[in-house]
Design a protein around this nucleic acid. Structure first.
Ligand SMILES: [Mn+2]
Ligand SMILES: [Mn+2]
Ligand SMILES: [Zn+2]
Ligand SMILES: [Zn+2]
Lengths: 141, 141
DNA sequence: CATATTAATGCAACTTAGTTGCAATAGCAA
DNA sequence: TTGCTATTGCAACTAAGTTGCATTAATATG
């Protein structure tokens, strides 16, 4: 779990400014348990009395994506994009259709086996993948 | 691979009308190698001199989805939805980042093992999943 | 064939999610 | 304190899809 101070220091070193909006957005992203949408992020800022604007939010998300500080996620059953802080390792999501909660899962070592099979049998070189599981969490079953 | 005549017969039996637009849309969907977008579908119809309209295309796609004749696919790297005729079995896609081609892959027996693991270790019951692989096809490597 | 019923269509106006140009503002190094 | 320029806000725009409503056209029936 990346700390706010580290991220800010890294940006500062890169010649970028630490504005109120930037700091607050990163705070909200770090504090958000489930991946958050641009709209949700904006609502969070406004609730915290941080003056912010739709355009700023989208531009800042683009900025943070470019720097690999956040990653964009498109859940299959939603039209909006969501964003989460990039942790060390690549992971996937378990999405509860009951309560809409989202949990992380890691199972990449195993997927790599498929990717080798795909290479062998089809000549297709997998560089990336997207996987999400929809279902019911323990509480909702 | 489902045949046009079968689909039309089934719809006719259900009390639905076989219109020029409906027939042509199903034809285009059957004939399209890679999943096609609403816009692409409309362009196809117009090229074939089938009078059609954006609204009709979207409404027909909704109709065909409800009847499980086509399925909607959201590729992660695109904003538009795509549609393909539903073949017998559930499958996934290999998307070439070079030439944008799309190939089908089936590997579901194996994913079920993960889903059982997820159930055991997290109490999360997987009901559905989405998986796509991005990379380079044989020709583009 | 003629005709009634109603499924399907076309148009325009609307919505949602995100983008862009540009002038104004504000971090921060000096 | 000041200058440079990164960042912001606003309004206008775009892309993808949706909706209400009046009109048209499949098709069942006589
Ligand atoms: Mn996550
Ligand atoms: Mn397919
Ligand atoms: Zn739940
Ligand atoms: Zn290719």
């Amino acid at each position: 779990m990346k700390a706010l101070a580290d991220i800010l220091a890294e940006l500062s070193k890169g010649g970028f400014r630490i504005t109120r909006a930037r700091r607050s957005m990163i705070e909200v992203l770090i504090g958000s348990r489930l991946p958050i949408s641009a709209e949700g992020l904006l609502a969070s800022l406004i609730k915290q009395k941080v003056p912010a604007n739709k355009t700023t939010v989208y531009r800042e998300l683009t900025f943070l994506k470019e720097r690999r500080i956040v990653q964009e996620i498109q859940f299959l059953h939603e039209r909006v994009k969501r964003y989460e802080v990039v942790f060390g390792s690549h992971h996937h999501h378990l999405i509860c259709m009951g309560c809409k909660s989202v949990e992380d899962v890691e199972l990449d070592g195993e997927l790599e086996k498929y990717e080798r099979d795909i290479m062998k049998s089809r000549g297709f070189k997998v560089l990336n993948h997207a996987l999400e599981f929809m279902g019911l969490c323990e509480a909702c079953r």
